[in-house]
Amino acid sequence: MAKKFFALIVVLTMVLGITGCGSQSTGNQQGDTKKTEESTEKPKNEKLVIGFAQIGQESGWRDAETFSILQEAEKLGVDLKFSDAQQKQENQIKAIRTFIQQGVDVIGVAPVVETGWETVFKEAKDAGIPIILVDRRAAVPEDLYASFIGSDFILEGNNAADEMAKLLNNKGNIVELQGTVGASAATDRMKGFKDQLAAKYPDMKIIASQTGDFTRAKGKEVMEAFLKAYPGQINGVYGHNDDMVLGAIEAIKDAGLKPGVDIKTVSVDGVKGLFEAMAAGEANVTVECNPLLGPQFFKACQDLKDGKTTEKWIKSEESVYRAETAKDDLPNRKY
């Protein structure tokens, strides 16, 4: 027992020693780079040089975002240094530090988590490199980043309510399929929709609202229960994402009703599957949550390089797609 304990102590000290050395040496490195940069007055890159620290590839939506950024960089002839962090914050931080050493013009980052960015953003600021947050926010003081490019979930909820009002002629009963409880996309899309109904459409009512966890299977199961609890009373279904509504469509069909006709649908995202459903006449509207942020991102980068200031929140260009044009839109959908 005593031997084992001793061995444990030895191992622990060794591990601590290693990590201790590690952090120390990186600390020195940072100091060095900072010094060289101060002394040489960061040389201006001729081409636009951008570092982008992507989260990884956890969903089709993110793949589309990555694709858009790579494609736009190629189109504009930007020197893009792209890093895939595989869902790990330490990899993103490492990537940002590398970008700083390489002296890029602007750093783009889609923060995998909200917290823990102050130090590395400060290093970038000290090196004179602006940071642009893409599609996710970071909990840092506003002066540590130049801009945030991303969606306004509340606005998406407002737009969805307007679309629903058009479909139902400002009057009717709606059931809501919420996203994961506590997710900002769910809370804000719910608030945006509810507020808009209260402000503009007094004759439209949410008669039931339940979480479908952003998944197709739960969306279907919840809709099945709604259809039994409110037989013949539901005029429209509002889903916080397209997948839940795709599930709900199956439930509506099972109930012998026509989705898109007897019960109208409005959802958020703009995934390909929903366009297929709209083309088949089984869904009505999707409010896009655009992952194709490449063009807006590089425009902001160019502005920053040219010394212009950019808006703190650049809202992503989003549009509403309706069933009437779905057949024409379908071939252009990338995700």
Binding site: E58, D213, F214, R216, A217, K220, D243, G247, E250
Partner: peptide
């Protein structure tokens, strides 16, 4: 049941 495979969920 959902006419599709959703590997995450």
């Amino acid at each position: 049941n959902i006419k599709g495979a959703d590997c995450n969920n």
